[in-house]
Design a protein around this nucleic acid. Sequence first.
DNA 1: ACAATATAAGTGACCGCTTAGATTTGGTTC
DNA 2: GAACCAAATCTAAGCGGTCACTTATATTGT
Lengths: 201, 201
Amino acid sequence: MNELRTSTQARGDRSRARLLDAAVQAFSAKGFHGTSTRDIATAAGLSPAAVYVHHRSKEELLHAIAVRGHEVILEAVTEATCTDATPAERVAAAVRTYVLFHARSHTTARVINYELAALTEEHFREIAGLRRAIDTVMREVVEEGVRSGDFDTPDPAKAATALLSLGIDLARWYRDDGSWTPDALADFYADLALRVVGVRP
Amino acid sequence: MNELRTSTQARGDRSRARLLDAAVQAFSAKGFHGTSTRDIATAAGLSPAAVYVHHRSKEELLHAIAVRGHEVILEAVTEATCTDATPAERVAAAVRTYVLFHARSHTTARVINYELAALTEEHFREIAGLRRAIDTVMREVVEEGVRSGDFDTPDPAKAATALLSLGIDLARWYRDDGSWTPDALADFYADLALRVVGVRP
DNA sequence: ACAATATAAGTGACCGCTTAGATTTGGTTC
DNA sequence: GAACCAAATCTAAGCGGTCACTTATATTGT
């Protein structure tokens, strides 16, 4: 009987999304503590109080951004590695996917990699779990390559950490006006990844 | 006639240093904007007003930390690469040095890599110059190895960026209570660096 | 005496967030 | 189809608290 999806509610949905977008931009540019809720509201074209119509708190905005971002990454790298290709192809696919996200969505990536200290302890633990899952995906495909003899590295776990580091730090230095496209960077880093894990010729 | 170094001034020097130390710890843990000058003063065992006896502003504290940190790194990697060893040995030495700093001084490293957006435009440009110099040192030794035929990489500049990324991101995830010592990590990453630049057998 | 060091006590500005109420909108009633 | 209701959206105003920083004064060591 009730359903809903009236245009009044559609307007609310748009406002909620615009607030999230504005929060991502502001948190990325000035950090969580350097951003005021008035900044966010103004950038979204709303009054300061509107933030609290759609979100419980400033921290809840960061939490929503972090959950969404990490879920997208986890799903993408899982899909990239859950194939029956060779370990080398799967590592390359995982790194390509991971790098593509951090280049294309570098604004979001900056927030979800560098602002997590502002989360509540409970929310931080939740995000830490998602990050562990991403790390596990990358580590397991490297470990499998070592077991099968396709890779040669003295420490698969640390090699996987290095691969993730390359993607994460990309979000720190990447600029849209740079000379490299996300795709070109993804190819370059996929090649690097094979060197890092020591793919046998 | 005047000299100085009285014990009154020595006390002032100690206070100035303690304030800088406290600022590094606080900026690293909670970010520049998440840290109050009262936090810093209290951690240094002084009254809130004491911050302004020794430093012009909170931003000037960050600037001093950033200048010192980048100068230390630049000097260290320059010394590591200005030898007559082979390109492979020099790249390994540079990465070892860079990784050692980011592991041992991860608290400082976090501040000088992730809090630069809080600097004034002028101070930021100054730090950007130091960072470019560090990047140049790493890039030139990779380029030299490519020219001499010792290395094989499609893009020496991006390979150098990747090497620096590994060190920088180390500061993000490194914990003192982890299982790896800074020296062990430096060795691991020095080996990785040779794979990244494609050292010929 | 004096100069450097330190503080107590503020300053106005801005912070995250709340409250009380106005406005917008679509559905229900006659 | 006019009158009305209920629910959602949104804002004006402002709350107590904290911010970076200043001023005026006291303390310290030579």
